[in-house]
Amino acid sequence: MAIEVDSVSKRFGTFEALHGVSLTVTDGALTALLGPSGSGKSTLLRVIAGLEAPDTGSVRIGGQEMTDAPARSRGVGFVFQHYAPFKHMTVRNNIAFGLSVRKRAKAEIDERVAELLKLVRLDGLAGRYPSQLSGGQLQRMALARALAVRPKVLLLDEPFGALDANVRAELREWLRRLHDEIHVTTIFVTHDQEEAMEVAEQIVVMNAGRIEQTGTPRELYEHPISEFVMSFIGPVNRIGNAYLRPHDVQIVPEPGGNTTEALVKRVVHLGFEVRVQLTLPDGREISAQVTRAAAHELELAEGQILTVRLPAARVFTPASEPVAPAPSTL
């Protein structure tokens, strides 16, 4: 179901966590709330779930006014950052919790739990306790528990934050596929731009309690509307007021046109891509990104002098920055 957040503000003491945030998420979308810590993304998620009450503003889920509804009657599934398992219950009873507090028939509960155990690939571990599960398994148990009650929307707070890098990659891929299968409106919070770009269909970039920009991963990367978005989504070179992606720095054979000399300070091989740290004649440092083949052809080595072209960089004028956050539609 669609989620509509309208000019929500939330203050904790003197700290303004959310500042007039408005957001619409369409039915069935997979959305990432992306931002640095303290940007208000988790607070926004908790306001939608009913775990925090906004000071002002309103929340609607599936067209229904939910601002003052308690968390338990909002029909949201929430996955906590540290999974919040019920440690004294088995995996089965954890997953069955939402159904058993609704006093569903035992047969119905058993059937649904079996279905979910299969969906999250925990069949065979139903009798275990949370202390006997790995991080990734706990994560999937928490997800199954949230999905058991067939929530209208699924909210995940830093779902992969506490996992090993390879388990993370696997779970991201899996969440993506799960969403394709069950089509529940999903919002997840992350501070990792790569994770947001890989998993989400739409990204909401947040900064200091405000929404900076919303869009598809590609829109955000190619048309960032602010300095913050540009530097948060992907690596960036700053040259005065101008911003330039490392892969836009061109290494050319001959001087001519808009070129300059650059000293190779460091060459970092990252598999397919090679990152080159360069020092310009005026002492400024920039980084360039080339393919492995290109690096090989240029025989890149530290101490080498290259000719580089810096194509038109993106300039954000300070005046254009504090745009009033218009209700963004996804």
Partner: peptide, 20 residues
């Protein structure tokens, strides 16, 4: 966390106390 999780899963305050 566990208490809030119980709330999002539909438990009343009373159920949350006794079960979680």
């Amino acid at each position: 966390d566990a208490e809030q999780a119980a709330a999002t899963l539909g438990a009343t305050a009373w159920q949350t106390f006794w079960r979680v």
